[in-house]
Computed example of a mutant assay.
Amino acid sequence: MAAICFTKLPNPSSTTAQQALNRQRHHHITQPNSLIVPPHSLNSFTSLPFSRKILTTRLSTHLPISATVLSSLPTAKPERFGSSGEKVPKWSWKAIKAFTMAELEARKLKFATTGTEALLLGILIEGTSVAAKYLWANGITVFKVREETIKVLGKADMYYFPPERPPLTDDAQKVLDWALDHKLKSGDSGGEVTTSDLLLGIWSEVECPGHKILAVLGFNDEKAKELEASSSGPGFIDG
Rank of each mutant, 00 (worst) to 15 (best):
V145S: 01
T169I: 12
D170V: 14
E192H: 11
W178H: 14
K185S: 08
G191C: 00
P167N: 07
S189I: 09
V193D: 10
A172R: 06
D171N: 15
L180F: 08
M158K: 15
K151M: 00
T169H: 10
Q173A: 12
G154W: 02
T169Q: 15
K183D: 05
S186E: 10
Q173Y: 04
D177I: 05
D181V: 01
E148R: 05
F161P: 14
L184Y: 07
L184T: 10
L153F: 03
D177N: 05
Q173V: 07
A156P: 12
G191L: 05
P163T: 05
K174D: 14
G187N: 03
P167G: 06
D171A: 09
S189V: 09
D157N: 14
L153W: 03
E147G: 01
F161S: 12
D177F: 08
W178I: 00
K144I: 00
G191N: 13
V145L: 08
K151I: 00
S189R: 15
P166T: 04
Y159I: 04
G190T: 13
K185E: 03
Y159N: 14
L168W: 09
P166E: 02
P166W: 04
D181L: 08
E164Q: 15
P163D: 08
D188F: 04
G190A: 08
T169V: 10
D181G: 11
K183W: 03
P166K: 12
A156Y: 07
K155D: 13
F161N: 14
E147T: 05
K183N: 08
K174W: 03
D170T: 11
P162A: 00
D181M: 06
E148S: 03
S186N: 12
I150H: 13
Y160M: 12
T169L: 10
G191E: 04
M158N: 15
V175G: 05
P166A: 10
L184S: 14
D170I: 07
A172Y: 06
V152E: 02
P163E: 14
H182P: 03
G190D: 10
L153P: 12
E192L: 15
E192D: 13
T149M: 08
R146E: 12
Y159V: 03
D171F: 10
